[in-house]
Protein backbone atom coordinates (compact mmCIF):
# COMPACT_ATOMS: atom_id res chain seq x y z
CA UNK A 1 0.00 0.00 0.00
CA UNK A 2 1.31 3.46 -0.84
CA UNK A 3 2.37 5.89 1.80
CA UNK A 4 -0.43 8.25 0.80
CA UNK A 5 -3.06 5.56 1.23
CA UNK A 6 -1.66 4.53 4.62
CA UNK A 7 -1.55 8.15 5.73
CA UNK A 8 -5.20 8.59 4.67
CA UNK A 9 -6.25 5.60 6.81
CA UNK A 10 -4.11 6.77 9.74
CA UNK A 11 -5.67 10.25 9.64
CA UNK A 12 -9.12 8.69 9.49
CA UNK A 13 -8.41 6.60 12.61
CA UNK A 14 -6.81 9.50 14.49
CA UNK A 15 -9.91 11.56 13.72
CA UNK A 16 -12.12 8.88 15.24
CA UNK A 17 -10.04 8.22 18.38
CA UNK A 18 -8.89 11.82 18.96
CA UNK A 19 -11.90 13.80 17.72
CA UNK A 20 -10.55 17.13 18.98
CA UNK A 21 -7.42 16.91 16.80
CA UNK A 22 -7.54 18.70 13.42
CA UNK A 23 -6.17 15.88 11.28
CA UNK A 24 -5.50 18.23 8.33
CA UNK A 25 -2.84 19.90 10.43
CA UNK A 26 -0.99 16.82 11.63
CA UNK A 27 2.75 17.20 11.21
CA UNK A 28 4.44 13.95 10.16
CA UNK A 29 7.40 14.82 12.35
CA UNK A 30 5.31 14.56 15.51
CA UNK A 31 4.67 11.50 17.66
CA UNK A 32 1.14 10.37 18.45
CA UNK A 33 1.73 11.49 22.05
CA UNK A 34 2.34 15.02 20.74
CA UNK A 35 -1.25 15.01 19.48
CA UNK A 36 -2.43 14.41 23.04
CA UNK A 37 -2.95 10.65 22.70
CA UNK A 38 -2.47 8.78 25.97
CA UNK A 39 -0.89 5.32 26.01
CA UNK A 40 -4.24 3.52 25.57
CA UNK A 41 -5.24 5.79 22.68
CA UNK A 42 -1.87 5.20 21.00
CA UNK A 43 -2.39 1.45 21.22
CA UNK A 44 -5.97 1.78 19.95
CA UNK A 45 -4.82 3.90 16.99
CA UNK A 46 -2.19 1.37 15.96
CA UNK A 47 -4.54 -1.61 16.39
CA UNK A 48 -7.30 0.11 14.39
CA UNK A 49 -4.97 1.09 11.55
CA UNK A 50 -3.54 -2.43 11.41
CA UNK A 51 -7.05 -3.91 11.30
CA UNK A 52 -8.10 -1.66 8.41
CA UNK A 53 -4.90 -2.33 6.49
CA UNK A 54 -5.15 -6.06 7.32
CA UNK A 55 -1.68 -5.93 8.83
CA UNK A 56 -0.98 -8.66 11.41
CA UNK A 57 2.35 -7.34 12.65
CA UNK A 58 2.99 -7.84 16.41
CA UNK A 59 2.51 -4.65 18.39
CA UNK A 60 6.08 -4.98 19.64
CA UNK A 61 7.22 -4.11 16.10
CA UNK A 62 5.93 -0.58 16.73
CA UNK A 63 8.10 -0.05 19.83
CA UNK A 64 10.76 1.99 18.02
CA UNK A 65 8.44 4.21 15.97
CA UNK A 66 9.82 7.76 16.15
CA UNK A 67 7.03 9.83 14.62
CA UNK A 68 4.03 9.72 12.28
CA UNK A 69 6.15 9.73 9.10
CA UNK A 70 8.08 6.74 10.46
CA UNK A 71 4.80 5.01 11.34
CA UNK A 72 3.44 5.56 7.82
CA UNK A 73 6.64 4.27 6.23
CA UNK A 74 6.66 1.19 8.48
CA UNK A 75 2.99 0.40 7.77
CA UNK A 76 3.56 0.87 4.03
CA UNK A 77 6.44 -1.58 4.15
CA UNK A 78 4.69 -4.30 6.18
CA UNK A 79 1.38 -3.97 4.29
CA UNK A 80 3.09 -4.91 1.03
CA UNK A 81 4.92 -7.97 2.40
Amino acid sequence: MTGAAVRRVLHEVIGEILPTVDVDRIDGGRHLRDLGADSIERVEIIMAVCARLRVTEPLASFGDIRDIDHLVAFLSEVSTR
Binding site: S39, R42, V43, L59, A60, G63
Partner: peptide
Protein backbone atom coordinates in the same frame (compact mmCIF):
# COMPACT_ATOMS: atom_id res chain seq x y z
CA UNK B 1 12.59 -6.56 25.73
CA UNK B 2 13.68 -3.36 27.51
CA UNK B 3 10.21 -2.18 28.49
CA UNK B 4 10.85 -1.40 32.14
CA UNK B 5 13.44 -2.05 34.80
CA UNK B 6 14.73 -1.00 38.22
CA UNK B 7 18.45 -0.43 37.61
CA UNK B 8 19.08 0.98 41.10
CA UNK B 9 17.29 0.89 44.49
CA UNK B 10 15.96 4.44 44.11
CA UNK B 11 14.30 4.62 40.68
CA UNK B 12 12.52 2.76 37.89
CA UNK B 13 12.80 3.26 34.15
CA UNK B 14 9.92 2.50 31.81
CA UNK B 15 9.03 2.75 28.14
CA UNK B 16 5.23 2.96 28.32
CA UNK B 17 4.51 2.13 24.69
CA UNK B 18 6.92 -0.79 24.55
CA UNK B 19 5.50 -2.20 27.78
CA UNK B 20 1.86 -1.94 26.66
CA UNK B 21 2.69 -3.49 23.32
CA UNK B 22 4.50 -6.40 25.01
CA UNK B 23 1.67 -6.92 27.54
CA UNK B 24 -0.90 -7.08 24.72
CA UNK B 25 1.18 -9.23 22.35
Amino acid sequence: TPDSARPAPTFDIADADRSLFAYLD
